[in-house]
């Protein structure tokens, strides 16, 4: 394809391979090194290699706390999972609802609402976090003074505020994924179901929602990942029960311990697997 004699051709081909190799070293190299260090029996979290150990995962000696024996870290994992499950549920339900709204319905200002809906993806997470914080702060104060102290507590930094804050942008992503599939749904299938005696809601339930199944599954994985990994927005809204990224960040600002390598490996494996599942699903989608 490239205009060159044979020898030049193979030379440029080798240059291309070298370039791709360089890119791969750049993208994967750091991840590989962190993984190796997570099993290195060296408390400085660096080289040289001092032998294989699992201490950074499981150990409770005074000078070596493995991540599974780190109570604060484990508590953060639990609260991360709680948040992620809640965010996933709400965002997927919103995503299905929005997909039907934008694909099936006609109403004034639809285009405008759609553009508005893309907003949370464009606005920097820090701005999104602060604006939700400021807004909820005002509402919580109003609730407190109207209904007595404590009425607005759920809108103070903490579990529910983190969930709401993450839903604000995760729901946009789930909407995009589910909308893309609903657009390809052949409406005559629903009509055929009704022609065969199904009620409208039964047709939607048994035919349309089943068709959306893979997209809903994919959207759920993506929502879980986005929630589990989010830092920017969560940082402002998080309360006494921080999520894993928040704990990690605060520890990283003070220094590096080998335990963080272990946490990284664990997160890479989980999110990597979930991510692969999501991309595999998306690829299937692309072919369908």
């Amino acid at each position: 394809m490239f205009a060159a004699s044979n020898s030049q051709k193979s030379l440029s081909r080798w240059l291309f391979y070298a370039y791709i190799l360089l890119i791969l070293v750049f993208t994967l190299g750091p991840l590989v090194i962190v993984t190796i260090l997570a099993f290195n029996n060296n408390p400085s979290a660096s080289f040289p290699w001092q032998g294989f150990t699992l201490d950074w995962f499981k150990s409770s000696t005074p000078d070596r706390v493995g991540l599974f024996d780190d109570a604060r870290m484990m508590a953060a994992v639990v609260s991360s999972v709680k948040v992620a499950v809640a965010v996933t549920l709400i965002s997927v339900i919103l995503g299905v609802n929005n997909a039907f709204l934008f694909v099936r319905e006609k109403f004034v200002g639809k285009e405008f609402l759609y553009m508005l809906m893309l907003g949370p993806l464009v606005v920097p997470g820090v701005v999104l976090g602060t604006s939700i914080l400021a807004f909820s702060h005002g509402i919580a104060n109003a609730l407190d003074s109207a209904l007595g102290n404590g009425a607005g507590t759920f809108l103070r930094p903490g579990f529910w505020l983190v969930v709401l804050g993450q839903v604000s942008f995760v729901a946009t992503t789930t909407t995009l994924v589910i909308t893309a599939r609903l657009k390809r749904f052949d409406l005559s299938l629903e009509e055929a179901a009704m022609d065969l005696g199904a009620t409208r809601s039964a047709a939607v339930l048994h035919v349309t929602l089943r068709f959306l199944g893979p997209a809903i599954f994919g959207a759920a994985i993506i929502a879980f990942l986005f929630s589990f990994e989010n830092f920017n927005t969560t940082y402002f809204l998080s309360g006494p029960d921080p999520t894993v990224p928040i704990i990690l960040y605060s520890r990283l600002r003070f220094g590096i311990s080998p335990e963080i390598n272990a946490v990284s490996v664990l997160m890479m494996v989980t999110t990597g697997l979930l991510g692969l599942a999501a991309s595999a699903f998306q690829k299937e989608e692309g072919l369908a």
């Binding site: 090194i33 962190v34 260090l37 400085s44 660096s46 990994e229 990690l248 590096i256």
Partner: peptide, 25 residues
């Protein structure tokens, strides 16, 4: 190329800290 994308940004930054800090790789 897609794999690192699924690793959270925090971990990505952390890997560079591991490489670049004074006692780093």
């Amino acid at each position: 190329i897609v794999l690192p994308y699924w690793v959270s940004e925090l971990i990505q930054a952390f890997t560079w800290m591991i490489l670049f800090r004074e006692t780093g790789v």
